[in-house]
């Protein structure tokens, strides 16, 4: 009887070890991808910040500025651009951002623009109509794609099909913490920053309205790209953490099972000795 159980334990240890190898490998892959994604996040931040500041300056200096992008529209639905991953096994990464987006969309006349296979599947199964499913592969979406998404969205916004645009993504705070976030893209809310230093007398060419109209789609594309970079880095960081935990768990279980295995083996030996001694 003891012999059977040691064999069973041995099998379990072996399978646990191969699982551990897989999770370890996934962790290392995620860590190396994370380094690249992190560099990308840091590179894309200044671009977005400067665009944002310029828009702030224009809205702050030109009070009479009227643009459809600034006005709350009355008709149309909500569009939510949801950025999730292509694969699972990344802890709560996918489910957190998807849940956040779903809360926003519930009960509203809503459409989604899913980016990432997990987002596409999620909204398809919940029968929420998609604006387009052309960007299912989150890892393939390039900066050019972000700009073409932004152009399509601006067009739909102008034609009155949608009245507000949100983006749901995951903020990359650090290696250990990522938080899902929802940001309103359109209509632009005129934010008043108390300490905002506004340089006086900026010359806009051809005119501030035209500069504004030209920059908004660029700005949206830039924001989207920024959100995408943040999400990608978050995905890798989440996966790395999840896989690190899995590896540790596997190690713990292996240690536990090894102890059990040794006990069982020792018990079998002791029993055998007892039998031999008793028999003689």
């Amino acid at each position: 009887m003891a012999g059977v159980s040691t064999k069973e334990i041995k099998n379990r240890i072996r399978s646990m070890e191969s699982t551990k190898q897989i999770t370890k490998a996934m962790e290392m892959v995620a860590a190396s991808k994370l380094r690249r994604a992190q560099a990308q996040v840091l590179n894309s931040r200044p671009y977005f910040e400067i665009l944002y500041k310029t828009i702030q300056n224009i809205t702050a200096t030109n009070r009479e500025l009227s643009s459809p992008y600034l006005l709350p529209q009355s008709e149309g639905g909500v569009l939510c651009i949801v950025i999730a991953g292509d694969r699972g096994l990344a802890g709560g990464y996918n489910s957190n951002v998807l849940k956040l987006a779903q809360q926003k969309l519930e009960g509203a006349d809503a459409q989604v623009l899913p980016i990432g296979k997990k987002a596409v599947e999620f909204f398809r199964s919940r029968k929420i109509p998609a604006f387009t499913e052309a960007y299912a592969d989150a890892s393939d979406v390039s900066i050019g794609d972000c700009f073409s998404i932004s152009k399509q969205v601006c067009k739909a916004f102008h034609s009155g099909k949608i009245h507000s645009v949100y983006v749901a993504y995951t903020n990359f705070e650090s290696m250990l913490s990522q938080s899902p976030a929802l940001m309103q893209l359109l209509p632009l809310t005129a934010r008043q920053e108390p300490d905002g230093h506004v340089p006086a007398g900026i010359e806009y060419e051809p005119s501030s309205e035209e500069v504004f109209e030209a920059i908004i789609p660029e700005y949206l594309g830039g924001v989207l790209y920024g959100a995408l970079c943040e999400s990608r880095a978050s995905e890798q960081a989440a996966r790395r953490t999840a896989m690190d935990n899995a590896t540790q768990n596997a190690e713990e279980m292996i240690a536990d099972l090894s102890l059990k295995f040794n006990r069982a083996r020792q018990a079998a030996i002791t029993q055998e000795i007892t039998e031999i001694v008793a028999g003689s």
Partner: peptide, 19 residues
């Protein structure tokens, strides 16, 4: 090249924004 033509900027330019 801006949308309204080529522009050269030298030191001491006034505050200016163009697409």
């Amino acid at each position: 090249r801006t949308t309204s033509g080529d522009v050269a900027i030298l030191a001491g330019h006034i505050n200016y924004v163009a697409p």
